[in-house]
Design a protein around this nucleic acid. Structure first.
Lengths: 198, 198
DNA sequence: TAAGCTACAGAACGATCGTTCTGCTGTCAA
DNA sequence: TTGACAGCAGAACGATCGTTCTGTAGCTTA
C-alpha cells in the first residue's frame, strides 16, 4: 500500500524462478514463466526477463536459450538479526550475498571433494560423512589438514613432522598417529568443509 | 573393433551433454544437441534422448521441457583413491558436475546463511566463523539444531523442552542453557554447514 | 541372398516459442 | 486536468521446436 511497486518484480519473481530451477534444473519457457509468476501477457514476461538479464540474474546461451546468469546462485547472508521478527523476503535485499561455491572454491580445476569416513578428526570439527573441499597439490606445510593416500584410501589428518619424516596426526585421542613407511603421498590440502544435516 | 557399438552412444554423448550443462546450466534443444553430438538428423537425436531418458539421465518437466534426470549428476566425487598416484587433471576434469549449492540447498527462497559466533556448539562440530545453512521456518522439533533470535542476535543451539517450555541448549558444557523469557523466536532450522579453512 | 536390424539423413508438419505492436488502467507530478 | 509513465492484457506473426514418416547404407544372421 504505502510503498509502490517500482521495480518490485525482482524479489518475489526471482525467488519463484530459483525454486523452480532448484526443482527442475532448467529455466522454463515464457509461457510457463507467465503462469509461474501469475502474469498472463508474454510481453510482460519478456520485459521482466530483460530486467533480470540486465541485473545479471539471467543470461542467454549462444543458441539464444535462456539460462541462469552469474548472480543467479547468490544467497543472502543474514548477519545481524536487525529486523528481528521478519526476515521479510521482499525486503531481504538487506544483503551480503554469497554463492557457496565461490566461497569455498578458488581454483575449480584443482579442487575436488572427498567424503570423510570415521571420527578420527572429530576434535577439528570434522565428522563422519562430511565433505572435505580439497585443493589438490603434492605437498603441504606442517600444521595443515591434508588429504593423504594411505593403503589406497583417502585419509584426512593433520600433517606433522617427527624426526625429519612426515606423519599424519588425527584429531581424536582414540586414534593412532600414522607413520607411513616410505614416501607420504599427499593428495591435497583441506580448504573447506561441507556438511548436510537434513 | 572387436566390440561393436550396440548402445555405444551413451558415454561420449552423455559427457558432451554434461560439459554443455556445466557451462550453461541448461539442456539445449534438439537442433543444438544435433550439432553438439555431430548428428544431423533430429529424428536420431530424439531416439538418443529417449534412451537417455529411459536410463534416467534425462527427464521432462511437467511442461514437456527436457531437463536433467536423476542420474545426470552422478557425482564424480573422489571417494576411493583407486588410481592412487595421479588425480590426472586431464581425466578428472569431468569434475564436479553438481555444485555444492545443489547439495546443500533445497528451497533457495527459504534458505539463507548465518555466520556462527563463538564456541557454544563446538561439540556438534560447529566452530566460530562457520556458515550455517538455514531453512527458514517459524517452528522446529526438539533435538534439531535451530537458529533462534535472542536479544536481537542470531544464536545457534539445540532445541529442547523443559517443563513445557522450549529452551536452547548449547553443545559445550562451558555455556549455559538459554531459557527465553516469553516466546522463543525461531528463525529457522539448520540444514547444513559450510566452513572455509584456507 | 534374402531378411532384419541399427544408425543415421532428409523432408514435412503442426505445435509452441519469443517478439512485436496495440491498447487499457492506475498513479503521479506539473 | 492533463500529459507521462509504469504495469499489465491480448492478438498477430514468423521462427523454431519436437514429432513423424520415408529412405538408405552397412552389418548380421539364417
Amino acid at each position: 500500500m504505502a510503498l509502490k511497486n517500482q521495480q518490485a518484480l525482482d524479489p518475489a519473481y526471482l525467488e519463484k524462478l530459483q525454486d523452480y530451477y532448484a526443482e527442475h534444473k532448467v529455466i522454463p519457457s515464457y509461457s510457463v514463466l507467465a503462469t509461474l509468476w501469475g502474469i498472463s501477457a508474454k510481453s510482460w514476461v519478456a520485459e521482466c526477463v530483460r530486467r533480470f538479464e540486465e541485473a545479471g540474474y539471467l543470461d542467454w546461451t549462444p543458441d539464444r536459450q535462456l539460462k541462469p546468469g552469474a548472480r543467479f546462485f547468490e544467497r543472502r547472508l543474514a548477519h545481524d538479526a536487525v529486523q528481528a521478527g521478519l526476515p521479510n523476503p521482499a525486503l531481504s535485499d538487506g544483503y551480503d550475498l554469497v554463492t557457496i561455491d565461490d566461497y569455498l572454491i578458488r581454483v575449480p580445476s584443482k579442487t575436488s571433494l572427498v567424503r570423510v569416513k570415521g571420527e578420527s578428526m572429530i576434535d577439528a570439527g570434522i565428522h563422519d560423512g562430511d565433505l572435505i573441499v580439497v585443493e589438490q597439490q603434492p605437498n603441504a606445510n606442517v600444521g595443515e589438514i591434508v588429504v593423504a593416500i594411505v593403503d589406497n584410501e583417502f585419509t584426512v589428518k593433520y600433517l606433522d613432522r617427527e624426526k625429519g619424516t612426515f606423519v599424519l596426526k588425527p584429531a581424536n585421542k582414540a586414534f593412532p598417529v600414522i607413520r607411513p613407511k616410505g614416501r607420504l603421498e599427499i593428495f591435497g590440502v583441506m580448504a573447506g568443509l561441507v556438511r548436510r544435516t537434513r
